[in-house]
Every structure is written in C-alpha cells, then in structure tokens.
Amino acid sequence: MPPSPQSGAETTLPSVTAVPGPRLAIRLDWLGIVPFMLFALLFLLLPTAFLMVGAFQDAQGHFTLAKLGLLLQGNVLDAYLISLEVSAASAIVGAIAGFALAWAVVHGGLPAWIRPSLLTFSGVAANFAGVPLAFAFLCTLGRTGLVTLLLQHYAGIDPYSTGFTLLSFHGLVLTYLYFQIPLMVLIVTPALEGLRKEWREASDSLGGTALHYWIHVALPVLAPSVLGASLLLFANAFGAVATAYALTGSSLNIVTILLYAQIRGDVLHDPNLGYALALGMIVITSLSSAGYLWLSARTQRRRS
C-alpha cells in the first residue's frame, strides 16, 4: 500500500522535533555561566581594554607614548623596583617556609591531626589580607603592639631598637608572609603528596642514597610545582594594594600605591599615567602567571 500523506508526515515528525532538544540543552548550559561572563566582561575585560587604550593617550585623548615612557623614569621606576623587591622577597621567603611546613606535615611523620588543622588554617590565612590584616599586624607588631610589648617586658627585646619598623620594606614583607606562607602550603601540599614512596624505594634498591634520590628523582619532580607556586606568590604580592596602603599609607612607594594616587582624584592625579602603570603591572603579573601555568601543565603531564 502506498504511504498516505498523513503517514509520511508522521515519519518526518520525530526528526523535526528532535533538533531543538540539543540546541536548547546547549543554550541552558551556557546560561549557567552568564553571570560569570558578565562579571568578567564588566569588571575585567572592559576595564582592561579601557586602561590599555588609556595608557597610550594623554589627558586630551591624543595618542602618546609619553606615559609609558614615564615608567622608566624617576620615582615610577623606583616604585616598580620596590614592588618587585617586596614581591620577590615575600615570594622567596614564603615559598621556602611554606615548602618546609608542607613537607613537615606530608612526609615528616607528625601526628595525623596536624595536617588537616594546618590546611584548614592555611585556607583561611591565605585569604586574610587588606585592612584587617594590616590592623592585626599593627595591633601585634606595631610600636605599641601586643607582641612588641610582650617581647619588651618578658624577653627584654625591643625590635624597634634594632631599626625595625612595621611601616617599612621589611615590615611589609613580614605582613605579606602571613598570606604567602599559607598559600604556598596549599599549592605545594598536593605536589608533595604526589611524591610516591615507591620512587624512593626503587632508588634505594638500585643503590641510591638519600642524596641521589633528592637530586635525581624528588627535586626534578617537585621543581615545576615549587617554581610555579613561587611565581604565583610573586604575582599575588605584586598585585596587593589594600594591605600595603592600610599598613604604610603612602610612606612606602610601591606601584600599587603610586597607581592609586593617580586615579583617586586629588590634585596630583594623572589617570593616564595610572593606566600606564596598570599596563606595566599587567605585563609583569601576566608573565608570572603564564610561567605558573606552563610549569603546572608540565607537572600535570608527568602525573598522567
């Protein structure tokens, strides 16, 4: 029997209705990340594009390289150098101390309860920054801080008599370490957990000493993670502003404070120099983050 027009319509119907299903599903999937994309667009991409353009303009909106040229002169260059020094110092000290802490809890044979306690504390401390952190340090290590007074009264040590001040390069590095060390602990703990007992045993059975194992096996395995984490710590410190500003006000000339001075709207402000400063920071933090991502990818590949 030849198919009737009606039966023909019935056979094509499923294929017609099947098409919108997957499309609808894809649309719904994308809908979930719309808030994030909007946020990223409004508060990251557009401002970045705006300041990148602004870095090449003068106050009248004309193209110029003068603002970028200022980055290599006088106090602006000094600000970059101090920022780089503070970031590098806090990243290096934070990386060493954080690695030692993580090593102690993962391979040090300490009681089992210490590890989750340290990781939980690190999770909190790594995010403790800004005005509260600066306030906490002023209350403890400030000239009349609790720890300073305890040291003076009970140990006979006055940190300030040695020239130490919290409102200085060393003070800022010390304060940054409060979040840098925990961040290092959080990042490097999984890498240390990835060091397999069998590698040590294989090295031993092949005649290797502890030194052989460290030089030839453990350090090459850990190096990308440790270096990558150090770069992340560096970028983390380099971009910090609230802690530094709340702690030192404008007494320490670091890039983020100098940048803030350009855009806050007082008589000395120069928004276009601010954009140029920000562009310089983007370049430095991007290089640092790219290094971190590249090293992380290498680590992941080896683990797979």
Binding site: R196, E198, W199, E201, A202, S203, H216, V217, P220, V221, R302, R303
Partner: peptide, 8 residues
C-alpha cells in the same frame, strides 16, 4: 605501580 622516575 611501575614506579618509573617520571622526569627521566
């Protein structure tokens, strides 16, 4: 688990 040294 083989235990080959992954960086070599």
């Amino acid at each position: 688990s083989y235990a080959l040294f992954p960086t070599m």
